[in-house]
Write a protein that binds this DNA or RNA. Structure first.
Lengths: 327, 327
DNA sequence: CCCACACGTGGAAGCGCTTCCACCGCAATA
DNA sequence: TATTGCGGTGGAAGCGCTTCCACGTGTGGG
């Protein structure tokens, strides 16, 4: 071999018999280049196995190339939730396909400034915020507008990609009602997550329409909280005959809590979740839930940020009921 | 504000009244600097809110700063496995703490060249390979030696960080034997994963020592395969009274398959898994398994690569039995 | 026949940083 | 006192790339 010298654009240009400027134009696809030049540069690239240096490219074009993914609320809950894991891996995968680097950040919940700091990092190609709070999003500098997206609820200035919590919730709660459940309780998500409001509102609406009374207990998307919530619900409203949890993980916890209480599912109480994580079909009884296109959502958000195409304010993806054994 | 000008090292140097070289030394901590210079630069940094540009730094120091994490064998199986998710998020988190970027890569299984290509990317600060095959690792150029680590089984030249499959397996299988199980079957991991060999060998040893005959069925770490495997096992050896799966996900699938068959767990057949994923305690019956310090393993591997400290060849982390209901 | 005007091209100036090198003063040694 | 050494410093040369700009060319319209 010719020594350990990774080929640079100069090498390519020399091999192709053109200037570095021309080689750059061909490689990036920006700017004009004759057909002949294009071919020769392409051949040289292939021959030398040239790979552009991302750092140099980012530096020279002063357009950051890194996609930062920020997850708000770093707790064990977030790490254990397969929903978040799927979002992360899909977004990262989308970025990897475009050969852009990814940095993952876990941000504290009540510190909007931390997001602002992250957003101000030079060399940021885009920012994807998972489960943002409004205040955090508002702290994002306007210089990044058009390169930020939220997975969850956004703001006027930050486009969002999320599942349609409203119709999703309606679907599940209606199913519960249609199968004869009269006294349906709900375990919500964390109070700071704005997407939960939509879902709770939808739940209230359906329950009222069926002549029932809402029974809402706060949750936090963890299984442990689900088990607690189940106990709370049964203590407070012993005649409850269905529980809807806004997260499968929580629903699984509810199943657990109910089991410990000696309550039969779905005999005594029906249980339904939300998300359709992989384990939903593995629990005993298998969990009735609502499935949403997480991969599609995460990929769309990543693409929107990476390609800077303006996608309007909010895009919702349909969530569809999956009936299994628990309800 | 003074216009949209992100402060550069030049600004810092000017504000501190030193040269750019000195400012750089202070900021990076490399090289000598007087106490006075250090203080003044630190003050300037704080005042201006200076953040070093990663791209420029990488370019100038020609020491890539990105940590690439490669997951071998991109299938739905890998994405759904919370074990992999935990490894990824922990490694990414460790990297983020050090302010190094991360790029995630999903590589095809039977293409060692793809890892080599990735490894040759300029500007790579380190490479972490999850679930590598031997041939893939052998394809990593020696120029990267000391900056590669495997999570799983490594090679002579690539240090590895892994759970101690041998004692972990022994622990589980012994527990099965000690609780009166005589005819213990095992569902392995994918055949291309070298770590599986250790576990299978350990399983054979314990079974032989107890006077039993090994009953091995191939698995692939998915739940679906676990369900199939359960059916296969019961068809082939109807008197089986215990199943050990080398992955919780698979064990959960086994539970499912057994349930469909009308086999009671743990009454008729005991089931044990490996990994202790979050759902292991949520299944019905709750899964007996072996827990390992995934976070610790992933963080150690990431640190080793990032800090370039030579950690010898292989580090094993203990796996400890967790007895729940299924065995 | 000359000017305007595209288009393709190469020269050269950086992007923000690290690092080699030469330099300077000062204390320790001879 | 002359010599070394060394910690601290600034100048300057790049790292590999993009991109502005000026400079030919070949076309078409006036």
């Amino acid at each position: 071999m010719t020594g350990q010298h990774t080929p640079t654009l100069d090498d390519v240009a020399r091999a192709a018999g053109v200037s570095r400027a021309t080689a750059s134009r061909v490689v990036t696809g920006q700017g004009a280049a004759s057909r002949q030049a294009r071919d020769r540069v392409a051949a040289a690239v292939a021959m030398l196995g040239y790979v552009p240096d991302a750092a140099a490219r980012a530096l020279a074009s002063r357009s950051g190339t890194r996609l930062a993914i920020a997850v708000i609320g770093h707790t064990a809950a977030v790490l254990d939730d397969p929903y978040v894991g799927r979002v992360l891996t899909t977004a990262a995968h989308t970025a990897a396909e475009r050969e852009v680097g990814v940095s993952l950040h876990w941000l504290p919940l009540h510190d909007p400034a931390s997001l602002a700091r992250l957003a101000e990092t030079r060399g940021l190609g885009g920012l994807l915020v998972v489960n943002p709070t409004q205040s955090a999003l508002d702290a994002v500098p306007r210089s990044l507008r058009g390169r930020v997206a939220a997975i969850g609820v956004g703001t006027r200035h930050v486009p969002s990609f999320d599942v349609d919590n409203r119709t999703g919730t309606e679907g599940v709660v209606r199913h519960l009602a249609n199968t004869g459940r009269q006294r349906i309780a709900m375990v919500t998500g964390p109070s700071w997550l704005p997407c939960g409001d939509r879902a709770v509102a939808a739940y209230r609406r359906v329950v009222h329409a069926c002549g029932g009374e809402p029974r809402v207990v706060p949750g936090d998307f963890t299984a442990a909280r689900g088990a607690e919530a189940a106990v709370e619900i049964m203590a407070r409203w012993p005649d409850t005959d269905a529980v809807f949890a806004l997260s499968d993980l929580t629903a699984l916890g509810v199943l657990d809590g109910l089991h410990a209480l000696g309550v039969r599912v779905p005999g005594d109480v029906a249980v339904a979740g939300f998300d359709d994580i992989a384990f939903a079909c593995l629990s005993r009884p298998a969990l009735t839930t609502s499935t949403h296109p997480v991969e599609q959502i995460a990929a769309a958000a990543a693409q929107a940020v990476l390609d800077r195409h303006d996608t309007g304010t909010a895009t919702f993806y349909p969530s569809t009921l999956v009936v299994r054994e628990s309800a």
